[in-house]
């Protein structure tokens, strides 16, 4: 087994998610992503199962591994009790560890995900937080959201929440000592290391593409957040 294949098969998601796939295609039949993208979880699992080092490297650099929505519908129906969605988690993890994610349009989006979700977690203790949601990036939220944002304190007061309060309750402020514990967990368990890799590999790619790279919603962020070549379907 090649070095990268070996790394992939050490991931618990592969160990627990793959047991002699019979290539029946049930996962592809039930998969929401397969109904939208040129995507087949059956083919992905078959490639992983082949343990072909070159094909697996191609997969790690591909668009396909980023199409899955991780709804895990595949788990329910697989007659072998395999979970292609979990194998996807392992492939994406390795793609980021090795820097291959910047080779695909969909993979490059990880920089935006890290800056939106990752930084909300560390700054606020929430995966998303109303104060950090840029309405301009979310036109689908509709006029009711604009009204909510404009009146956020009064609406929360009306609903009896703990918004911006240092108490228990809905949308409370998470105390600094609790954020510090999250930060320490991120350091001990490798999340900070992954964040650094996402930033560093993305910076290299931005240089290759001659796109300005800084932090927050910079030119490269908007590039990966909005680019769609239209060839994914």
């Amino acid at each position: 087994m090649g070095k990268i294949t070996d790394l992939l098969f050490k991931d618990i998601h592969v160990e627990d998610g793959l047991s002699a796939c019979i290539n029946c295609g049930t996962c592809t039949a039930i998969c929401p992503a397969a109904g939208f993208y040129h995507y087949s979880p059956r083919e992905i699992v078959d490639t992983v199962q082949s343990k072909n080092e070159l094909k697996i490297i191609d997969l790690l650099k591909s668009e396909q591994i980023w199409y899955c929505g991780e709804c895990m519908s595949c788990k329910t129906r697989c007659p072998r009790n395999n979970t292609p969605g979990m194998i996807i988690i392992a492939l994406r993890s390795l793609s980021q560890e090795l820097g291959y994610f910047t080779e695909s349009e969909k993979g490059r989006q990880q920089l935006a995900v890290k800056r939106i979700i990752g930084e909300a977690i560390l700054n606020k203790g929430y995966c998303v937080h109303i104060d950090q949601i840029e309405t301009g990036l979310h036109p689908e939220q509709g006029p009711v959201w604009d009204w909510f944002k404009e009146n956020v304190e009064q609406v929360h007061e009306r609903l009896g929440t703990a918004y911006k309060k240092n108490t228990a309750g809905v949308m409370r402020n998470i105390a600094q000592e609790d954020l510090d514990e999250l930060d320490k967990i991120f350091e001990v368990t490798g999340a900070h290391d992954r964040f650094r890799k996402i930033e560093e590999f993305s910076k290299q790619k931005a240089r290759d593409l001659r796109i300005e790279f800084d932090k927050g919603i910079d030119e490269y962020f908007l590039h990966v957040y909005q680019s769609n070549c239209g060839k994914h379907y």
Partner: peptide, 12 residues
């Protein structure tokens, strides 16, 4: 959401 958008390791 970070786990299922793959920006944090499972250990985290």
């Amino acid at each position: 959401i970070a786990y299922h958008s793959d920006i944090v390791p499972f250990d985290t």
